[in-house]
Write a protein that binds this DNA or RNA. Structure first.
Lengths: 110, 110
DNA sequence: CAGGATACCTTGACAGACGAGGTATCCTGT
DNA sequence: ACAGGATACCTCGTCTGTCAAGGTATCCTG
């Protein structure tokens, strides 16, 4: 990824929630989707991803369940909860504010 | 401020450089300017601000000098260096990329 | 049957933000 | 005269999220 980690920091959980809002998924798949949808600009390290899942689950934003183990390695699926959807909505509003505030602060040439 | 700290994290130095690009300034003044220009949405804690100054100076992005002490408390002024201006330009490009990437990742409703 | 992709997880270290605390000067209201 | 607030700087120790490194296990392809 080309974006520095500190810039993504604070958005990790929001990105995960946004992916799960489109349907249940599992760690590996979410990570690939994030890389692809951001054109390779963003991406999580596995340790970051799994600690974020743990945090989100402890805070009631997501729930998890083991997938039916067909062929391949076992998968732990995650699902967003109503509280998670509320959080996502709040995070989206905050992101809009962030864009406006930072544009005012750093993009002004004077 | 209403924006959470982790979201500003990674932009602290960029914001300071952007303020200094408009002219030399000092800690207290920069902090007030940031609050005002962001409509109260952003703001630094003093400890954050001064550790960022130290980092920026160690990395050659800014230089500092004591102001002529007129009335009032003494002030340490900061000035952006050529390296700091280059960094600022790079940070602005990165911010544009960040906006595009995060909009794609979290603003899409599906 | 080796090697790569898929898939999950933990531990310990590190860096940046910040609460709490400290110092010092000047101005305003009582 | 002096308390309180604004201005202005700084440090220490704690907390939190990221991540390098390491580990486990399955499946597919050559």
């Amino acid at each position: 990824m080309s974006l520095s980690a500190d810039i993504l920091r604070g958005h990790t959980e929001t990105i995960i929630l946004a992916q799960l809002a489109a349907g249940d998924s599992y760690g590996y798949e979410i990570n690939k989707a994030v890389s692809q949808r951001s054109g390779g600009a963003a991406g999580f390290k596995e340790a970051t991803l799994y600690t974020a899942f743990k945090r989100l689950e402890q805070n009631g934003m997501i729930t998890s369940y083991w997938g039916e183990d067909g062929p391949g390695a076992r998968r732990r699926y995650y699902a967003i909860t109503p509280a998670g959807r509320e959080q996502l909505a709040a995070d989206r509003r905050e992101w809009s504010e962030t864009k406006a505030a930072l544009d005012a602060l750093i993009m002004k040439e004077d």
